[in-house]
Nucleic acid binder design. Structure first.
Lengths: 335, 335
DNA sequence: TCCTCTGCTGACAACGTTGTCAGGGAGTGT
DNA sequence: ACACTCCCTGACAACGTTGTCAGCAGAGGA
């Protein structure tokens, strides 16, 4: 039982397909009698317009769909971005194709290519590491493209990011203010630009005060890796009195490790990126919070402004971060 | 600068459009020389096939896209479902259109209609309250439809759920086992079927032991509502010695309230639905856990099996729940 | 009465692609 | 040398829809 088409409706209502099209699109100038006949036929056949076919023919060729390429739709940061964009898209009557790349550049390319093939009107991309130079104007054919969370490499486009370096510096300053001089850094994969920036911010803050960078552990990507790394740090000589954990899962892994060492109340900790329930842990977790909702809304609205015909030079938009003190970062150095 | 089409490529390569189509689709039987010419032209023009147009013409009319209708893409349960479905979809080379309904039946209808208009090959729906009878065969025209998390009303279709009643009973049994006789219930909107089932499970467990149902609060939908409700419970006569919180956010709100009352170590609590960091709170939170990954995978694979042509009578698939003890549920009744 | 104008309707082609089919050229067997 | 395959290629139409345009009927004016 195939879907009814516009021709089927036309046949049943004894009018031309074009008239059905007019009724469906609420165009003026159709006799009420015909409108009624067509409406009845539509009802009877359960006809639903094929939007795909109509956008193929339509003047602007828009599909009222945008593509959203995220790190992982299930992670809280990505899914908050996603939701914010959905809200903006809904205001424009636009649907969202979403997908996860899991830090895999090949998957990023595959997803974008899939979305482009489906003729999305715009793309928002949280790029995996690698190079986005393949997204040439030719490929996109004028499709608006906005990067979010991480800047692209090898291409100039609108980008919505936070100031990772300044945020990290702020976090580490906070620890220094509380008397710490041996501050460990635990950060994500070196291949991720934001991770490098956060490490740089960490270094900046220490350099300002003439403090030697404490133990630095990079390429910590998962909770369990973070847990192991912290155990190693505290088994070694000169363990840090404070930790700066430069990513969500790393923060949580570190907390888990401190717990099992019984040090959660003696070692200070500031994390980058807020997470649910951070306030309910003991101690509450002090973090530098991003605002994924603001990022998502802005990224999506840039796409829609381009679609509306506005033009401007691609720019980088920086969303501010916020230090949220909850206890873990205010533990004074005992020395 | 419009996107290059297959005709443009054909013109440049001096072959017919059909030959370009053959090359793009890797059909056998094209002279290597022509393949090379076409490939070069594709490269030069940055041509990307219009998948939308091709699925319009193609034999089966498939768009290699499925629609996923969730409560809220940003909530951990929904987004885990989403991710699980994405993984299955990827195996089939299928993209996902996702959207949030926020408990609003009108939005559910709008989203499904949007997705249907874009000719999705299948639909997975976590229904908002209301009636899904509008999803008649006529409308869907044979598109596979699977419900997840909540059973549909007014229509028979494949459904993937957990046994909410049994899970709730299990949770409350656990509290009874630990000596509690006044067990409060805090649950979600009465309009949500699963909330009603969980309340029923709560009643079942108490009835089995001949215990009078303790204070019951329904229609608690948000964290702050839960917080207020708990404060009210403990301000009243005969406060419960244990709580069964029948939803994610309700559990968290209740914990927050118990904290502020200083009772988190004296009032037992079992929540329905696991959440991240439940193990890191003090006490750890005992929960009846669902398995959204398993639910999502199953729901998606049912869609793909139907798409592959398998046929069977619509059935309800029940995914088991699991009681995870972490401390809060094992607090003994002091009396 | 005839002409013009307006308002409604449908025929036709096209959006970008692919299924069908027929035709031409080269290769094989006699 | 001739017939017969087989292989490759392109013309054509069609998927479901809408932009364009021409035609027709009825109303209004001279």
């Amino acid at each position: 039982m195939a879907r009814a088409t516009l021709r089927d409706v036309a046949r049943l209502a004894e009018v031309s397909p074009k008239t059905v099209s007019r009724v469906v699109n609420r165009e003026a100038g159709v006799t009420p009698a015909k409108v009624a006949a067509v409406t009845a036929a539509i009802e009877k056949l359960g006809y639903r317009p094929n939007f795909t076919a109509s956008s193929l023919r339509r003047a602007n060729g828009r599909t009222a769909t945008i593509g959203v390429v995220l790190e992982n739709v299930a992670n809280p940061f990505s899914s908050t971005l996603h939701r914010a964009m959905e809200d903006v898209a809904r205001e424009h009557g636009v649907a969202i194709l979403a997908g996860s790349v899991d830090e895999d550049p090949a998957r990023e390319r595959a997803l974008i290519s899939t979305f482009a093939g489906r003729q999305v009107d715009g793309l928002v991309v949280a790029p995996a590491s690698g190079n986005q130079g393949y997204l040439t104007a030719e490929i996109l054919g004028g499709t608006p493209l906005v990067f979010v969370d991480r800047p692209p490499v090898g291409i100039s486009a609108d980008t919505v990011v936070i100031d990772n370096r300044a945020g990290a510096r702020r976090a580490v300053d906070h620890l220094i203010t509380h008397g710490h001089r041996t501050i460990g850094y635990l950060g994500d994969l070196r291949s991720i630009a934001t991770a490098r920036d956060r490490l740089q911010g960490y270094r900046d803050a220490l350099a300002d005060e003439g403090i030697r960078p404490g133990p630095v552990v990079e390429d910590v990507h998962t909770e369990s890796e973070a847990e192991r790394a912290v155990h190693r740090l505290f088994a070694a000589d000169r363990p840090p009195t404070a930790l700066f954990t430069a990513q969500n899962l790393v923060t949580i892994g570190a907390i888990r490790a401190l717990r099992s060492l019984g040090r959660q109340h003696t070692v200070a900790l500031v994390g980058f990126d807020d997470f649910p329930l951070a306030d309910l842990l003991e101690p509450g977790v002090t973090v530098v919070a991003q605002d994924p909702t603001a990022m998502g809304r802005l990224a999506a609205s840039l796409v829609f402004r381009r679609l509306a015909g506005e033009q401007w030079e691609p720019a980088v938009h920086v969303i501010p971060t916020r230090l949220i003190t909850r206890g873990s970062g205010e533990i004074q150095n005992a020395v």
